[in-house]
Amino acid sequence: MNEVNYFSLSGNELREAITKKVLDILDEYIESSGLKKDNCSDDKDINSEISEQKANILINGKNILDLHLVDEVGLDSLSLVELLMSVDEEFGISIEEDVAEHLNNSNELIDKVVELIQADKKYNAN
């Protein structure tokens, strides 16, 4: 499952790889919410150039990464937990519950993942 070794990446590359994956995970929820992407021909995935396009996907004129997970994507409490578990599993991290409660959108989620992976890297390097 883990084709990407996030520990070998850093800076923009790391953020981009994480963004791509988070968007993949988010897709299922976007779909079941019935939200329509404004500017999207179905993505073909695979390389990071396309992921950059994905990150620019707009929904109702707003960047997908800025959509409020509960109010705009429409996640209920259990779906939010499930989403975060998928993220934990994908990146081999553990987002603390009190942090999870205060996450508003995917950008903040990606920030958190970057932060946790970098912290892990530091820890492993020591």
Binding site: L78, S79, V81, E82, M85, D88, E89, S94
Partner: peptide
């Protein structure tokens, strides 16, 4: 397979 924390979906019970 996934461990106790990740193996149990929040939707499992309902």
């Amino acid at each position: 397979v996934k461990g106790k924390r990740l193996g149990i979906s929040p939707f499992f019970l309902p």
